[in-house]
Amino acid sequence: MGTYKLILNGKTLKGETTTEAVDAATAEKVFKQYANDNGVDGEWTYDDATKTFTVTE
């Protein structure tokens, strides 16, 4: 398990959240659902060194 971070750079929603997941693929699924639930759809990037996903609208 590891802690993964999501940085939201949406047009109307900005912020950060974290999740505990077994791997990056699992964290990505959780974060994409979170972003979708909050109406954020954009370009995704992932930094393996910091376990950080970023979505920018």
Rank of each mutant, 00 (worst) to 15 (best):
M1V: 11
M1E: 09
M1F: 08
M1N: 11
M1A: 10
M1I: 07
G2L: 11
G2R: 12
G2V: 13
G2N: 15
G2T: 11
T3D: 06
T3V: 11
T3N: 09
T3P: 06
T3S: 12
Y4S: 00
Y4H: 02
Y4M: 01
K5P: 00
K5N: 07
K5I: 12
L6A: 03
L6G: 01
L6K: 00
L6T: 01
L6R: 00
I7T: 10
I7L: 08
I7C: 04
I7Y: 08
I7F: 07
I7E: 04
I7M: 07
L8A: 04
L8C: 06
L8N: 02
L8Y: 13
N9E: 10
N9M: 14
N9I: 13
N9K: 15
N9Q: 09
N9P: 03
G10N: 04
G10R: 04
G10M: 12
G10K: 04
G10E: 03
K11H: 13
K11W: 12
K11T: 15
T12P: 04
T12S: 10
T12A: 10
T12Q: 10
T12W: 15
T12D: 15
T12R: 05
L13R: 03
K14C: 05
K14E: 08
G15A: 13
G15N: 12
G15V: 14
G15I: 15
E16L: 04
E16Y: 08
E16T: 08
E16H: 09
E16R: 05
T17E: 07
T17Y: 15
T17R: 10
T18D: 08
T18F: 13
T18I: 08
T18N: 07
T18L: 13
T18Q: 10
T19P: 01
T19I: 13
T19G: 03
E20F: 14
E20N: 10
E20A: 11
E20Q: 12
E20P: 06
A21G: 04
A21L: 03
A21M: 03
V22H: 14
V22E: 08
V22A: 12
D23Y: 03
D23K: 03
D23E: 05
D23W: 03
D23M: 03
D23G: 04
A24C: 06
A24I: 11
A24S: 12
A24E: 10
A24D: 05
A24K: 10
A24T: 09
A25P: 14
A25G: 11
A25K: 15
A25S: 12
T26G: 10
T26I: 06
T26H: 12
A27C: 02
A27T: 01
A27G: 02
A27R: 00
E28K: 09
K29Y: 12
K29L: 12
K29S: 12
K29E: 11
K29Q: 12
K29D: 09
K29N: 15
K29A: 14
V30Q: 08
V30L: 11
V30G: 04
V30I: 14
V30D: 06
V30R: 08
F31P: 00
F31D: 00
F31M: 03
F31T: 00
K32C: 04
K32L: 12
K32P: 00
Q33T: 07
Q33Y: 06
Q33I: 12
Q33R: 09
Q33N: 15
Y34M: 05
Y34V: 13
Y34P: 00
Y34Q: 03
A35D: 01
A35V: 11
A35G: 03
A35S: 06
N36K: 11
N36Y: 09
N36F: 12
D37W: 06
D37T: 08
D37R: 06
D37P: 01
D37N: 06
D37I: 09
D37H: 14
N38Q: 10
N38S: 12
N38R: 15
N38P: 01
N38A: 15
G39T: 04
G39C: 04
G39N: 11
G39L: 13
G39A: 09
G39S: 09
G39E: 08
V40F: 13
V40Q: 04
V40N: 03
V40S: 03
D41H: 10
D41M: 10
D41C: 05
D41G: 07
D41E: 08
G42Q: 02
G42N: 02
G42D: 02
G42T: 02
G42A: 03
E43I: 11
E43G: 06
E43Y: 09
E43R: 12
E43K: 08
W44P: 01
W44T: 01
W44V: 02
W44K: 00
T45D: 11
T45G: 07
T45N: 10
T45E: 10
T45L: 10
T45Q: 10
Y46I: 02
Y46H: 02
Y46L: 02
Y46A: 01
Y46S: 01
D47S: 15
D47P: 00
D47L: 04
D47H: 11
D47Y: 04
D48C: 04
D48H: 15
D48I: 15
D48E: 14
D48P: 11
D48K: 09
D48Y: 07
A49K: 13
A49T: 10
A49F: 07
A49Y: 10
A49N: 08
A49C: 05
A49Q: 11
T50V: 09
T50A: 09
T50E: 09
T50M: 14
T50R: 06
T50K: 08
K51M: 09
K51G: 13
K51V: 03
K51N: 11
T52V: 12
T52A: 04
T52W: 02
F53W: 08
F53Y: 06
F53M: 02
F53D: 00
F53G: 00
F53A: 00
T54I: 06
T54E: 06
T54M: 07
T54N: 05
T54G: 03
V55L: 06
V55S: 03
V55A: 03
T56N: 08
T56K: 07
T56P: 01
T56Q: 07
T56M: 07
T56V: 12
E57N: 04
E57G: 05
E57R: 02
E57V: 06
E57I: 06
E57C: 03
E57W: 14
E57Y: 06
